[in-house]
Amino acid sequence: MALENCPTDARGLMSGILQQGYSMGYVFAACANLGVGGAIETWKTVFWIAAGLSIGVGLIRCCFPESKQFLENKKNGHKKAPGAFWQETKLMLAQQWKMCVYCIILMTWFNCECLKYFG
């Protein structure tokens, strides 16, 4: 959604920046954790902040319209029924299962390497 509006040329760059949201969340959580101090009950404060953030973003999202791409697709009657999706998935698994297994192993390995340091 955040990216399907972007011009195609800029999409690669913007998706890279979007991923930093995860790191930003981690940094903010770390700041909050430092901010509340080390007492046991303080974890609740951080969770309250987290809840406020999530609900806040949800409410902000209410103020903006639905994705144009989605509305156009719907208008054109181009509905991808879940059935069609499953058929495509089955076809993909039948033809490219080796590639799928490879990708899963690759991503698992990447994530392990990354989370070893980053948590």
Binding site: L3, L18, Y22, G25, A29, V46, L53, S54, S67
Partner: peptide, 21 residues
């Protein structure tokens, strides 16, 4: 749209790491 998406992702990561940290 981009910033709302980024904020959602940030809030999500905050929720998750609120636990792990």
């Amino acid at each position: 749209f981009f910033i709302v998406g980024l904020a959602a992702w940030t809030a999500d990561a905050f929720d998750f790491h609120a636990l792990s940290i």
